[in-house]
Nucleic acid binder design. Structure first.
Lengths: 236, 236
DNA sequence: AAATAAGATTAATGAAAAGTTAATAAGATG
DNA sequence: CATCTTATTAACTTTTCATTAATCTTATTT
C-alpha cells in the first residue's frame, strides 16, 4: 500500500498530454491533466498536489510565467519543467525560478516516472514515516530484521527481538555515532539507568555475533553512545 | 560570504575532467578531481565532500559499482551520474542506486553548475540552520566532532569529549584569540580557578595531538586566552 | 634581579561508565 | 505444570577520563 502521489500535468499539446497522463496513471500516480494554463491557479486552489509538471511552450501562456505565479501563491508546491526548447538560457531560467528538474523533449516516459518518483520520495523523506528497510548488509553478515535472522556465509543465527532491533538501529546508521539516549528512546521507550545497563548487555551480545568479520566493530564513545564501524582496516 | 561547496569529480577522461573541474572551480566550488575510481573510497574517508559527480563509463571501474560502494559506506554523501551512454536502462539504474541526477553527455557546463548548485542549496536548506557543523579541517588534520575522531593522513586518534569540544571550539575560531573565560563558560559551564587549571591540561593534550603538522600551533596570550594558529609562516 | 603570577607538563586519584558473566523473573509454549 | 526463551537485574571487573596535585617553566611587574 504505497502512497499515491497527486500530480498536476499542464500540457496544451493533446497527444503528448494524453500519452503522459495515461502513462503516469498506469504507474499509480493520481493525475490531473489541464490543457489550459490559465485555469491552473484555480485548480491548485481547490486540489492538493504533490507536484506540478509544466510545459514551457504553451499557446495561451508561457510556462515560466505560470511557474512564477505558482511559486508566488503556492510556494510549497514543487514543480518541474517539460520542454521542446533546449535553449541553454531556458534551462537556467527554469532552475532559477525554482524548478526541481528540467526535462527536454523527446521525453522518455519511463525516465520521467523515475525522476518524478525519486524526487517525490526525497521530498517526503522527512515528513512521511519512511518505509522501513528490512534487509541490512553488515560487513559480510546480512540481517533480516523481520525474521530476526543474522546470516554469515551459510550459517544462520536467530536473534532475539532486542538484539535484532538494536543491530537494525546501528546498521541503519553505520559509521555514525548513535547516542544511547536515542537508541534507548526508540527501542526501549525511555532512557533510564537500568535500560542503559540493559543496552550494555545487548551490545556485548552483538559484539559476539559480529566477531566473525574482523572488519566490523561496535565502538563506544565514552558518555555518548555507540558506533557500528563497517570499514576498518581498508584505509588505515 | 557564501558557503563554498566541496565537490568530488570522478572522471577518467583527462580532457573532460580538466574542463569540468576548472569550470567548477571558476564557479567557486572546491573541486577535487580524481582520475582513478579505485582511489575514491580513500579520498572520501579523508575529505569532506558535499557532492560526488561520477562518470558511469570508466576503464578501471564501473561508476555504478562505485556508487553502490559509496552509498553503502558513506550513505550521507549525495552523488550524481555523468554519462555518455544514454541507454534508458542505465538512467533507471542510476536513479535506483540513489543518484540525485543523471546527466548525459555532451554536458553543458553551465547547466551542470546550475543543477549542482540548486541541488546543494536544496539539500542544505533543512540542515544549515539548526544542525551544527561537525567536520573541521585543521591544517592537515580533520576533526569529526561527532565521533570525536582526529584524523591525520589515515591515522585516526580518539579524542575524549573535553578534548574534542575544546578543539572544536578553537577550530571554529581559527587565528582568533579565544578568551579562556569564554571557553570555560561554553565548555565547562563556569569559569573558576580549578577549571582554568583543567583547561591548561587539555591545551597540553591538544598540542601533543597536533604536533605532526608544524604549521599548526596553539599559542597562549598571557592572561587572556589561546589562539589556534593555522597559517604559520604567513605573518611570522 | 627578585618576586609574583600565569602557564606548561606530567603524574596521581577517584568516580563514573562500560564490559562481562551469571542469576532471576516474566512470558510463552507445549 | 514443566520447560524454554528472553529481557532485566545483579554482581563484579575493567577501562576511561576529568579533575586535582605537584613540579617546573615562562612572563610580568616593580
Amino acid at each position: 500500500m504505497e502512497k499515491k502521489y497527486n500530480i498536476l500535468l499542464v500540457e496544451d499539446d493533446a497527444s503528448l498530454g494524453y500519452l503522459l497522463s495515461e502513462y503516469l496513471k498506469m504507474k499509480n500516480f493520481d493525475v490531473i491533466w489541464e490543457k489550459n494554463p490559465t485555469k491552473v491557479m484555480g485548480l491548485i486552489q481547490s486540489n492538493r498536489f504533490d507536484l506540478a509538471i509544466l510545459d514551457v511552450m504553451m499557446v495561451e501562456m508561457d510556462g515560466f510565467t505560470l511557474a512564477a505565479d505558482i511559486s508566488k501563491k503556492f510556494s510549497n508546491l514543487p514543480f518541474i519543467f517539460l520542454t521542446a526548447r533546449s535553449l541553454k538560457i531556458d534551462v537556467l531560467k527554469g532552475f532559477s525560478l525554482g524548478a526541481l528538474d528540467y526535462l527536454k523533449k523527446p521525453i522518455d516516459e519511463e525516465e520521467l516516472v523515475v525522476r518524478i518518483f525519486t524526487l517525490l520520495e526525497r521530498l517526503n523523506k522527512g515528513t512521511s514515516t519512511d518505509k522501513e528497510k528490512e534487509m541490512f548488509e553488515i560487513g559480510s553478515y546480512r540481517l533480516n530484521s523481520s525474521t530476526q535472522e543474522l546470516i554469515f556465509e551459510s550459517e544462520m543465527t536467530h536473534l532475539t527481538s532486542r538484539e535484532s532491533d538494536l543491530l537494525k538501529y546501528l546498521a541503519s546508521h553505520p559509521n555514525t555515532l548513535c547516542h544511547h539516549k536515542n537508541i534507548l528512546e526508540t527501542i526501549w521507550g525511555n532512557d533510564d539507568y537500568f535500560n542503559r545497563k540493559s543496552l550494555n548487555v545487548f551490545i556485548t551480545h552483538l559484539r559476539k555475533y559480529l566477531a566473525k568479520d574482523p572488519s566490523l566493530k561496535i565502538e563506544n564513545v565514552h558518555g555518548k553512545g555507540f558506533i557500528l564501524k563497517t570499514d576498518l582496516g581498508k584505509n588505515n
